[in-house]
């Protein structure tokens, strides 16, 4: 699967932004006034910035509003609704703590739950895809939610929570990778089931000598040979380094370093999420080992 930069930026930053909104909604940290304004600004820049970035890969971004119509069947449409409702509810809660110094607890809790609903709907866009066996697992929403909660806690300055959730997210990440490495073979989809031809089937000739949309979008192979190194980099930057920094005495510089390191690690993992996704259409082109 071709890793579109806009989608990687979106899922990394928005996940982090909604994770921060989750903890802010629960009053962790319980801030008001200027400090609250700073926290909410960061959260909204990340969440909204990510959402805007996600429209860059559309063929017709000017029609993006139509994506609100099909919530009955489409996880992408549900994500659009969840994000707008979550941002509106958290804006109400944020306005309360920033300008009125008032903490409307129920609104905050509702906003927190909705923020996680956004991350869940994002993850389900991928987890529903039977065509990508590596994604089609409950571990995918678990991973997205864990990473969002851990990153949000880190950004919210919740040291104890971050120290607890970062290792949890790291473990889920490793489990997701390990399961994913055999997912295509386990799925039972092979060139044999794809063509229904009797005997041992081998791709002899592709339909065209040139490339095409399918090969560019779904049969992306560049960089896979470095997958293991990238996984180690992702684990190191995303989870291990931030935990080590948190063990040091607190300073704002160290905290910023931990956050940036975490973002770099998660972005690397998201790049791998797409780059390693083996879409079954690759079978027709003889590009899958299975």
């Amino acid at each position: 699967m071709h890793p579109a930069p806009s989608v990687i930026i979106f899922s990394t930053l928005s996940g982090l932004g909604f994770g921060l909104l989750f903890w802010l909604g629960l009053g962790l940290p319980s801030v008001t006034g200027g400090t609250a304004f700073a926290f909410f600004t960061i959260a909204y820049l990340l969440a909204v910035g990510g959402l805007i970035a996600s429209t860059f890969h559309l063929g017709h971004p000017e029609r993006a509003l139509k994506a609100f119509t099909q919530w009955r069947s489409s996880w992408l449409s549900r994500e659009a609704w969840a994000s707008v409702v979550a941002l509106l509810v958290m804006a109400l809660f944020g306005a309360g703590v920033v300008f009125a110094g008032a903490r409307w607890g129920l609104v905050g809790v509702a906003g927190a739950v909705l923020s996680m609903a956004v991350v869940f709907t994002t993850s389900m866009i991928y987890a529903q895809m039977r065509t990508v066996p590596r994604w089609k697992t409950p571990l995918t929403p678990a991973l997205f939610l864990a990473v969002s909660l851990a990153g949000g806690a880190l950004l919210a300055g919740q040291i104890v929570l971050a120290m607890t959730l970062l290792p949890v997210a790291g473990v889920i990440q490793v489990a997701w990778w390990v399961r994913g490495d055999t997912a295509l073979a386990q799925s039972g989809t092979t060139l044999g089931t794809a063509t229904q031809l009797p005997g041992t089937v081998r791709a002899f000739e592709p339909p065209h000598t040139g490339t095409n949309y399918l090969l560019r979008e779904f049969v992306y192979v560049v960089g896979r040979k470095h997958a293991l190194k990238l996984r180690i980099i992702s684990l190191g930057l995303g989870y291990i380094l931030p935990i080590l920094v948190l063990l040091l005495p607190f300073s704002h510089v160290a905290a910023a370093l931990a956050v940036l390191s975490h973002i770099a690690g998660v972005a690397t993992s998201r790049w791998l999420f797409f780059a390693e996704a083996e879409h079954v259409v690759g079978l027709y082109y003889g590009k899958r080992a299975a």
Partner: peptide, 27 residues
């Protein structure tokens, strides 16, 4: 005229039956 060119339908198709047109940006 309703297609935003997100490509999700092509991701969902196991057969590679849908292709995004590079010029028009629609499926």
């Amino acid at each position: 005229s309703d297609c935003i060119g997100c490509g999700l339908c092509a991701w969902a198709c196991p057969y590679g039956a849908r292709e995004m047109d590079a010029k028009e940006g629609v499926m």
